[in-house]
Nucleic acid binder design. Structure first.
Lengths: 207, 207
DNA sequence: TACATTACTATCCAAATGGATAGTCTATTT
DNA sequence: AAATAGACTATCCATTTGGATAGTAATGTA
């Protein structure tokens, strides 16, 4: 697996840029046009070289069947899009996608579980969970549905706002606890809407 | 944007499965073959319906130019593959990719910065940074190269192991500090190899 | 200098491909 | 009973596309 020449690298970069931009994989003629080649053969030569060097592969005869072989792509597991909400409405409707404010995309491996349709993300505001090492600005990934167990971190709807709390059971009764001495300690989880159980977290460094 | 019929949904699922499997987008005839249609027109009809319903789009006349429009895909920003190391060798060679143990894939938005070739990830072992809310098992994303500033979290190579420390400057001299009373407090950062500055973190819930 | 590699131009061809026309069959709705 | 929409067959055609052949020019490099 040797290195591509400069010209070959430019072709490779172009292909990757097109894929990243969501466009279909370029054809020989599209590549030729991009670089001003008057013959698509020139592009074909570069692709042949890239194939010899193990950087791309394609299925012979098939249109737009190029595939860029990145060393990391082999290791990469499936990527998932998780909707990110500012706060979740009470009903947690099935038709949640249109309301999403953003999107968190992570691979399964990093996030450690297989998201379902009931997986969503929230941006944490406030430091009520600092005792469990969740900070203001963190994005938490939650799963709606499963019954929380003692000690799980959950998102609950309190006064129309989603807030994170620790879910506890004391002699059979469920309670919610904030992990910060500044906040009221326990509150009954009876009428409260449990929206999801903590599954994963993404934090970015403060700039 | 109405809903697809059952047959249309099956076609849509097939297309997504193919893309997901890393294969090129299927052609009309490939779709027809998959479902046993004797005419590729049948597949074309389904695709037309899916287009009307706003679920896919394509560039007319172009081979394999289908694109599945997911509501979340619109919100999704560019995804990046960051190599994940167990521990980093001292030299931090340019040719780091073959040595990667895994791969963290996240979108730019979630991670909050634009990774470069010098971006990499490490799995944290130990609780030396618990005071900065970084736990055992967390994956940290770091950037190699930039001069750390006072208070930055950095990965440093100590005794052949990468460990996280807080970077401090006391009267001009750089020091490293563990954020856990169990660990020795300060050590001079003179001969130590600073491998990267903390940029982001991914944590998965303990099962 | 001779030779190999890279980087192209110019054409040609057959297969792959999207798209169009015309029609059948079958549920479901009106 | 009539109308409508979905699902499909059978063909035809113009482009698009990958691949092949043949050749030119520049740049190393042994």
């Amino acid at each position: 697996m040797s290195k591509p020449t400069r010209a070959q690298q430019r072709v490779l970069d172009f292909i990757q840029a097109e894929v990243h931009a969501g466009r279909p994989i370029p054809t020989l003629r599209e590549i030729a046009a991009q670089f001003g080649f008057r013959s698509h053969r020139a592009a074909a030569c570069h692709l042949e070289a890239l194939k010899r060097k193990g950087l791309i592969e394609s299925e012979p005869g098939k249109a737009r069947s190029l595939r860029v072989i990145s060393p990391l792509a082999k290791l990469r597991s499936r990527i998932l899009d998780i909707p990110l909400f500012g706060s979740i409405p009470a009903g947690f409707a099935r038709e949640r996608e249109p309301e999403a404010e953003g999107c968190v995309s992570v691979d399964i491996e990093s996030i450690g579980f297989r998201p379902t349709r009931n997986t969503f993300a929230l941006r944490v505001t406030g430091d009520s969970m600092i005792g469990r090492h969740i900070l203001d600005g963190d994005v938490v990934v939650l799963e709606h549905g499963p019954e929380p167990r003692h000690g799980d971190i959950v998102a609950a709807l309190i006064d129309g706002e989603s807030t994170l709390k620790t879910f506890l059971q004391r002699s059979g009764k469920p309670y919610l606890k904030a992990e910060n001495p500044k906040y009221p300690d326990l509150m009954p989880a009876q009428e409260l809407m449990i929206q999801g159980v903590f599954k994963a977290l993404i934090r970015r460094a403060k700039e």
